[in-house]
Structures are given as C-alpha cells and as structure tokens.
Design a binder for these strands. Structure first.
Lengths: 198, 198
DNA sequence: TCCTTTTTGGCGCTCGGTGCCATAAAGTAT
DNA sequence: ATACTTTATGGCACCGAGCGCCAAAAAGGA
C-alpha cells in the first residue's frame, strides 16, 4: 500500500525504457532514424524485437520517451497558477514552464528535439503527440471560460500555443546560444506585433 | 508547343487520379480508412496494386488529391495582392481565398477534410503536407520583410496561420451550417481578442 | 518441489512501400 | 504489314513495422 518499492513478482524485466532510448539514440545519431531498424535496436539492447514493442508502441514513439508523464506535469503547472492571472498570461507561463528543463539535460533535449523536428516520419507522428499536449491547454481554457474543452476558442488557443511552441523550438535549434524559455517569450512578442501591426 | 492536348504516345493510361480518388473515398466511407487496403482500392479501380503507387506516393496521399496544384494557386493568390496591403491583412486574405471553394464542391470538400482531420494516420501525415503550405506563407512574408523564408518571423507566421486554419476547419466541420470563409474570419477575431485581453 | 505470476521472445502473418523487369499498347517510320 | 520507339502496366520478390498467439523462462511463495 505504500508508494515505495513494491515487491517484484514474476520474471524480472530484461530492460527498461531508458536503456532502449540510449541504444536507439546512439543508432539514430550514427546512421539515421529511417535507416535504423527495430531489429538493430533490439540487438543493441540485447533483447528480442518483439519485446521492444512492449516498451514502445511504435518506433516513432521512442524519441518521445515518456511523454505521458510530461503531460501530467504540464497539467500540474496549470493547477498551480492562481485564478486571477489573466488567461493568456497563464497559458504563456505554463507553456514556458513546461519547456524549462534542467540546464544539464538541455544538450540531450536538443538532440531529441532536433531528431523529432527534422525527421519526416517523426514530424508526421508528432501530430498525434501534439494533440494530447493541446488537449491540456484546451481543457484549462475551457475550465477558465466555463465552456467545453472542445469548443472553438479553447481549441484555437491550443493550436496557436502549439504553433508558437514549435516555431520557438525551430528558432532554438537554429541558434545554439539561445535559451529556450527566452525564445518562447520572443516569439510571443513577435506574434503580438505581427497581429497588431498596420 | 501550344497548351492544348498533346498527342499521347506510348501505352495509354489505365486510370487517372480522379478515378482512384472516387473508388478510394467510396471504400473509406464504407469501411474506414485503416480497414481499406491498397489492394482493395486497386481491385475497385480495376488496376494493379503496383500501378496505384505510381499515381499516389502513399495511401495517405490519396485523400489529399492533387495538393501540389492547390499550392501553386495559393502562391498566385499572394502575387495578386498589391504591396500596400498590410502584411497580416494580406496573409489573412490569401488564406481565406485559398479555402474559398465553389459552393458546389463544398460537400465533397467536407468529406475530404473530415477524413483527414479525424483519421489518426492522416492527421499524422498531414504534418508533411502542411509544411509545404506553411512554406508558401513563409516565403511571402520573407519577401515582404526582406529576410530569408526560414527566418524566425516568417516561420512563426506560417505556423500560426496554419493553427488558425486547422482550428477553423474543426469549427466548420462541427457546424454544418457555417461558411468556411466566415469561420476563418471569426477565428482571427477570437485570436486577436485572446492575445490582447487582460 | 510445485504453483502462480509476469515477462520474454520466437513464429507467422498482414500491409504499406519499393526495385526490377518483362510485357502490353499505343504511335511512327520504313 | 513490319519493325522500332515510347510509355504505362502489373506481376514478383523483397523489406520493415506492427500484431496476435503461445510456449518457455525466471522470479516468489506455499
């Protein structure tokens, strides 16, 4: 009943998500994503191909790691913001907080995002992951405005927030000397200027 | 040298894009996209499976029809706008013009977009098509602002314009009685309100 | 030692997608 | 009519992702 270590039963796991990610990223870096087969990854990890599909539902999901957990954290960001903060300000803050990683993990994060944003197969697959990310925003906006999360405005805010985030990531990847959180802020400033300029 | 019918040479084509689209959409409607195999489509068209892949590079591309031609038209929209029209206004007008279809073709367009926007495999694939659409916008914005098309601002405008378009399509699909062009305008108004509200 | 639990991983299959190539079906020149 | 050229077809074999099935492995507990 406690949250600590539960006694493992049955056959122990032969690997874990982190080990698979490491082996996979090494191969992706060395020979490219498309050129790497699941069999090669399985061999590198020292596990059967079939087992790989139990840890990651698809090859495309490997670069995303444990995105579901990140989304849980994303939701908590929203819960932590007081209700008197303006809506757009809240969304902007939380999006930045979501992408405010430990400085030490930034290099790895850069590799991950470069892979996702430059590999066509992953660009395509990302749409499915982005959807869940947008849903977090839509749900919050819906709650704040007392309307369903799938109403036009909440969804619009989700889409535009994502657009801003992806554009920011592209900018961040192109300029190694920039900080992710600052790039987000700049993008927002530019968007407001674009929309309000004559 | 004239633009009219060129004398066909060699073996005549056994089918064309339109015929494949018709057969495919009928099957997609009847049994779903994922449940329809390329072999079934080939049989329905009365052509070999191999031939299908010469007309469409992938199954995912069939619902998009001849999107490349649409993009050519999209580019022409921008060329037709005088330079004294404000940038954001120009982009907004052209995006609306791009989606201003013949009233008679709207029902078919609805079917197509519903398929694309609700089928996971197609949602994913769309990212690749959207990229080319965004590029048209980025190139224009880059030209107007005398900067490369892949500079941050042009790309940001491309991403946000797409976000607005997709959100508008979702709204249009959910409300059969609305007009596509009007929905786009409403989304823009809501976006400005969202970003400028306190 | 047997039983239960859990994971592994091999096997076989489907389906999208591709390279290869012989062949069909047209026009054209002799 | 025959031969040549051009272009499209479509069969065949192959690859890789992904999945259902299931026997076997590897642990703990009785």
């Amino acid at each position: 009943m406690s949250a600590s270590r539960t006694k493992p039963q049955g056959r122990p796991s032969a690997t874990d998500h982190a080990a698979i990610e490491r082996a996979a990223f090494a191969l992706f870096e060395a020979q490219g994503f498309d050129e790497t087969t699941m069999e090669q990854i399985a061999d590198a990890v020292g596990v059967g191909r079939r087992t790989l599909f139990r840890y990651f539902p698809s090859k495309n999901d490997i670069p995303w790691g444990q995105f579901d957990e990140s989304l849980r954290h994303f939701r908590e960001q929203f819960d932590a913001v007081p209700d008197d903060v303006p809506l757009a300000e809240t969304v902007h803050r939380c999006v930045i907080a979501f992408n405010d990683f430990d400085e030490a993990s930034m290099p790895q994060h850069r590799v991950r995002m470069r892979l996702i944003l430059t590999t066509p197969a992953l660009q395509a697959h990302s749409a499915l992951r982005y959807e869940a990310w947008r849903a977090v925003i839509s749900e919050y906006v819906g709650r704040r405005l007392s309307m369903p999360a799938d109403a036009p405005l909440p969804r619009l805010v989700g889409h535009v927030s994502l657009a801003l985030a992806v554009a920011s990531y592209e900018r961040w990847l192109a300029h190694p000397d920039t900080r992710l959180t600052e790039v987000f802020a700049e993008s927002m400033v530019e968007l407001r200027a674009y929309l309000t300029s004559g």
